[in-house]
Every structure is written in C-alpha cells, then in structure tokens.
Amino acid sequence: MGLLVNIDNGGSFTDAFATDGERVAHIKSPTTPHDLSQCFVDSLDRLSRELYGAEDLARLLGETDHLRYSTTSGTNAVVEHKGSPVGVMLIAGEEQSLYGAADTLGQTGLWPAMVPAAPVALSLNNNELDETELMRGFTTLIAHGVSRVVVALPTREQELIVKDAVLERYPRHLLGAIPVLFSHELVRDDSNARRLLSAVVNSYLHSSMEHFLYGAERITKQHHLRSPMLIYRNDGDSARVAKT
C-alpha cells in the first residue's frame, strides 16, 4: 500500500498527515497566505523529513497513492470580500427576490460584495429570447467592471437558448476575458435559489483559487505523483482540480 497524504490548509496553520497503514506522520506548519503554494510545499517537505529523516519531496510523492487537500481559503475570501466581482442574469421578475435567495441572504452585505451590479433581467416568451435585451445587459455588466457573468434561469433549456445567443453574438475570442457560467452546467439542483448562489460563489472565488490549485497540481506532477491531487469539496466529496 502506498501513502495516503492529507493536507488541511487553515488561516494560521497548515496540517499535513500521511500514512501507509503502518507508518504515521503528522506535521503542522505556518500558513503563508501571500503564497499558498509555499506552505503547501513546506508541509510536504516536513512530512518527508518525518518519514525518511531528511527532506525528500520526490520520494514522498513517488510513494503516494492519493493526495487530498482541503482549505479554508475560499471561506476566508468570502468573509473578507476578496473575490472577483460577478454579474448576474436572471429570468425577468426575479431581480429583487433572487428566486427567494434574498430572504436567505438577509442584510449580511455578502450579495452586494459579490454582485456589485443590479441583476440583468432576461425575457423568454415561448422560448424566444430578446437578444437586444441580452446585449444591453452584457454592456451594462461590463461597464460595472464585473470579471465573470452567471446566467441562472429556471430551466436548462432556457439557459441553452441564452448560451447559443451568447456564443453567436460574443464569440469566445471576444468574450474570453469575461467568462460566462451557466448555473445548470455547474449544479444539478432543482432549487433555483441554491443553484444561483452556488454559481455566484463559485465564480466569485474561481480566479483566486484557480491560480493556486493548478500551481499546486503542477508541483505534484513535476515530482511524479502517480494519481491526480484531489480537492475536498463543501459537500464532503473530493474531486480533481479541474472538476471542482
């Protein structure tokens, strides 16, 4: 049996644990919030020292079957309002209620921190999209400086209509700097409110987390980790970086 390595990155300290069923090693090292890849590598170096008596990152990762990583960085970014501004497009009539999510958010101040511009209302009558309204909405959101746009409509079919129009009007080479996320592609949830909030939070955190997680995965590949690094998700499951 190879090693199972778990790393838990907190705001102050990063804990790492490794076992192969016989040997057990645990270390704690300071978190480096300015560069999370530094404490990630430091933790692995310290684990290798605990196991082998000297730092040997290549050997540690070469003997590792599974490496799993969890972090509070996303939660901290939400609390500290340090994400990327998100624009939102909803079905007409839900701009204020946010499909009922407004009641859940209350007066926390979280929504305006994540979504600085008023939601754009989209009208679909008999599945016919008002494309002038769509283009005007994009122009408004871009003018407000959003980094990403979330389209959250009640049905997958409605979102596909908007997606086709977006790709036709705004080819990827023109809109690439402002990614558009469709809620049904991210979350399988019949609750419009939960799906909307999941898509917004994901978009809000994506840019800051993406850089580090892909960087950490690149480090493990350079040292010949045999299986993909897994990221713990909020639902308790884990998945590859590209699937989170």
Rank of each mutant, 00 (worst) to 15 (best):
D56I: 00
A117G: 12
V149Q: 05
D237V: 05
A16F: 00
S208D: 15
L141V: 10
A118G: 13
T104N: 15
D45R: 13
V180Y: 13
Q222D: 13
L122S: 01
A216D: 05
L122G: 01
M89S: 05
V120Y: 04
L98G: 02
A25Q: 03
V86S: 03
D164H: 12
A54Q: 12
L51M: 04
V149H: 05
P112Y: 10
V24G: 04
E80G: 02
L98Q: 02
V201A: 07
L47T: 03
T32F: 04
A77H: 12
G74L: 08
L129C: 06
L213D: 07
L90T: 07
V146Q: 07
G106I: 05
E94Q: 12
H66P: 01
L153S: 07
R233A: 00
T72W: 03
F40S: 03
K221L: 13
Q107F: 15
L4R: 05
V162R: 06
D8G: 03
Q96H: 13
R59G: 03
G236K: 00
T19E: 03
D8E: 11
M229E: 04
Q96P: 04
N125V: 14
G100W: 09
N126D: 14
G106T: 02
H223V: 12
V78N: 11
E95P: 03
E128Y: 08
L197H: 00
G100L: 12
V200G: 01
S207P: 12
T64R: 01
E94A: 09
S191T: 07
V41H: 07
R59Q: 05
Q158E: 11
F17R: 07
T14N: 01
A239G: 06
T155K: 13
P154H: 10
V86E: 03
P30N: 06
I27L: 04
L197P: 00
G137C: 08
D235C: 00
S203P: 12
D35L: 14
G137D: 05
D56M: 00
D42I: 11
G93Q: 10
V41E: 09
Y99E: 09
L44T: 01
R59I: 04
Q107S: 15
A242Y: 06
S70C: 02
L197K: 00
K163W: 06
